[in-house]
């Protein structure tokens, strides 16, 4: 029994073989999982960026730091 449906040995004629990846038949589920992970990444990233910006905005001596950074170029 193999995770690649129908491929228990390479005693095959390659002219008659198509897709050979594991868990064939679950492509739609895999795409859904992939899309959920992608959207989840954006949600996490925006939240994380918001928190970082918020923290930077509350930095002490903001004006002095800005002048230093402008001078640093």
């Amino acid at each position: 029994m193999s995770t690649i449906k129908g491929l228990d040995s390479w005693a095959v004629d390659l002219a008659e073989v198509g897709a050979v990846y594991p868990f064939q038949g679950t492509e739609v589920a895999m795409v859904i999982i992939g899309v959920v992970l992608w959207i989840g990444w954006h949600i996490w990233q925006i939240k994380s960026e918001n928190a970082e910006i918020e923290e930077d905005l509350h930095m002490a001596d903001k004006r002095k730091k800005a002048i230093e950074e402008i001078d640093r170029y």
Partner: peptide, 23 residues
């Protein structure tokens, strides 16, 4: 080619393989 691999693969279709000569 399958003849050069000389394994279980049948037919005459040439292929790329990994290092283990599996397609």
């Amino acid at each position: 080619s399958p003849e050069v691999i000389d394994g279980q693969i049948t037919g005459v279709t040439w292929t790329a393989t990994n290092i283990y000569l599996a397609p």
